[in-house]
Each structure stands twice: as structure tokens, then as C-alpha cells.
Amino acid sequence: MIQHTDHFHGSDLEKIEAVYHIKKEDITSFSANVNPLGVSPKLRKTLAERIDAITSYPDREYTSLRKCIAAYADTDYQNIIVGNGSTELISLFIQIRHPKKALIIGPSYSEYEREISLGGGTSLYYPLKEEDDFQLDINDFREHLSENLDLLIICNPNNPTSTSIPSSHMRMILDSCKQHGIFIMIDETYVEFAPDFNDTTSVPLTNYYNNLIILRGISKFFAAPGLRLGYAITGNADLIKEINGRKNPWTINSLAEIAGELMFTDTEYINATRKLISAERDKIYSLLSKTEGLKVYKPTANFILVRILADNVTSRDLFEAAIKKGLMIRDCSTFPFLSDKYIRFCFMMPEKNDELIRCILDTLEAARHQTAGQ
């Protein structure tokens, strides 16, 4: 049994295997937030056919790849920086900006705070409130922005709450940040899953604000975390020059370059993903909204945050019940501002989603019977 303070990341299948004696191949990870369709058939075929590309160096400037990304993101390719996953770009950006004090909208991804700490900076959190269903109070938030801050970090849609900030509100935040000399980093890892994509992405705002950088990757939407391809979008030419000057050459391998040039034009896969996630998101939200003992928050990404209302059930209880069936959810007790009453899980294929929902409902029902029998 693991200690209460421990938790499993979506990629920790080896740890799960060791603790629960379940082969990692038999585990369905609802914790990793990766597209359940897996790698597209077109990408799989192309990479197999072009394996010899690894005998050559990729283009040092990645011009063709950046143009493909720019067409996909509807921006100028000169505003694109590519990196070895968005994690490398987060690290490079924070090293360059070297913020002494950063504000993070939380609960959120822990890597932001870690990178700021490594650079000697301090992180503060602006907590999203449960009573507001973790939706940002834009007016109250803007009052917390001041010259004392160097950097604002926003994950949009946010992990783990699956809530998002519309572009109209993001423009208001940018105006306030501009006034106070604050740079903004927006992590759009999950934006392609958003039902209102055009109203959620902040990429068009890079044409008007030079205090903005947006980060994306292919790990989640394109189900390719192992390829390690990420990209940043900014209209700040000086920042682009500085990041490219500090970056190691050829951080993206030849196969990842080929994959990127293909996947951003794979409209059949893109449309199939959005159709699947939209249908499962609506189905699961509707079902769990009516479930006694749970509270759910309207999701905009490919995962959902759930609060357990039953007194005698914790996030650890649901994690244990699910993993025994080979289903891995996220115990959210280690996220800032959450507790052992919150779980998060992503949307997988319909039959697996149904299996997980049955497991959750059965566990809650068993707990109700236990309470009634006391």
C-alpha cells in the first residue's frame, strides 16, 4: 500500500505494476489525459515508411515544420518556436525571463512552480474557488495583479479543473498585465479538445500583445508523448531570438519532425478525435451530474474533475476500487486547494468509460449500504 502523501502520475505505470501487481499492458490510464484513439493510422504508416530519416540531421531551423504548425495554429511561422516537448520550452522561457515572483492560477500543473523555484523565484497562487465551480472571477482576479509580479502563468483549459477562460476575458487580463509590466505564459496543452476552440485559444492575441507566450504540444491531443515535440507562439521577436539563441540545436529528432509535418494536416484524425471527445464528455457529464454522492464541474477539456460528497468515500477509495479493475484514475489530493475528496479522469473509448463509471457508481452504492447498515 502506498503512503497517503504519494500519488501516481499518468505515466507511472511501472510503479502501479510494482505496487498492485498488475501488468502495465493491462492498465487503462484515465490519468494521463491522452487521446484514446492513439497514434493515427496515417502517422503510423508514414513513420514506418520513413524510418531511414534518422540517418540524417533534421533541418536546423525546422522551417517546414514551423510552417505546418503556423498553418494549423493560424499564425505566422516566424512566431513559432519548436522544442523537445513543451516542458523544454517552459524551462527555457522561465530561465530567460527569470521571474522573481510569479502568480499561478491554481490548482494547476506542478511543473510551473518547480521551474520557477529552480531559477530562484517564488510562486504565489490565485485559487479558483469551488463555490464558483472553479470558474475564474475575472474582476476579483484583476485586482490581484500588481507591479510586484513579474510573470502570470495560466493553463487554459486548466488541469485539473477542466475549466477555461474565454478569449474576451483573456484580453482583459492581458490589458491589466500590460499596465503592471507582467508577462503572461499560457499553457494551451488541452485547447484542441475545447468545444469552443476559437473562443478559448489566445493565439490571435499574440498579434496585439508582446507580453504573451503560448505553449502547446502533441502529447495529449495527438497521443504522441514519446515523440517529445512542443511549440511556442509569441509575437515578441526579441524573446524568440533569445530562446532560439539559448536552445541546443536539433532538440527535435528527424522522426518527430516528420510526424509534426503530417499530424497537423491529418484532418480525418483531428475531426474524429473532436467528435469522440465531445460525445463522451457530454454523456459522462450528464450522467454524473445526476449521481447522488458526487458533484461534477462542467468540463471543457478531455477530462473531468469530480468531487466526492459521500462522507465515507475518499479519492483514495475510488482510486483503489478502479485500479483493481485495471482502470487508473487520478487521486487529486496532492493538487493545491484540492483534498482527498477529488478525482480526475480523462475520456477514453466508450466501453472503457462505461466500465469506469460502473466502478465508481458501484463503490458509492456499497458505501451507502455500509452506512445504512451501521
Rank of each mutant, 00 (worst) to 15 (best):
S289V: 07
P350G: 07
L276S: 03
S278G: 15
F345C: 03
K295V: 10
D331I: 11
L262M: 13
I323W: 04
T291P: 00
S286W: 09
S278H: 08
S286P: 04
K341Y: 09
D362R: 10
G293E: 00
R307P: 02
R316F: 07
C332V: 09
F337M: 14
E292Q: 13
I343G: 00
F337H: 15
M349P: 03
A310W: 04
D354R: 05
L338H: 06
K352T: 11
T334E: 14
I323D: 02
S278I: 07
V313I: 15
L361M: 13
G293A: 05
D282M: 12
I304R: 04
F337V: 13
D362C: 05
L309M: 10
N353Y: 01
R330E: 12
N302A: 12
A310D: 10
I343K: 01
T363Q: 12
L356Y: 06
V296E: 01
F337I: 13
F345A: 01
F335I: 10
D311W: 05
A321V: 11
N302H: 10
K324L: 12
C359L: 01
M349K: 12
I270P: 03
K352P: 04
T291G: 00
R358L: 09
I357A: 03
K275V: 11
L361I: 15
T273L: 08
I284W: 01
S286Y: 12
E351C: 08
F303E: 01
R358Q: 13
L276H: 03
V313Y: 05
M349E: 13
F335H: 12
R274I: 06
A272H: 12
K352Q: 14
T300R: 09
C359F: 01
D340W: 04
L276D: 00
T334V: 15
Y269L: 05
Y269T: 05
F303V: 04
K290S: 14
E261Y: 12
F335K: 02
I277P: 02
R344H: 08
T363G: 05
K290Y: 09
N271R: 14
D354A: 14
G293N: 01
T314E: 05
I277G: 02
D354N: 13
N353D: 13
A310F: 08
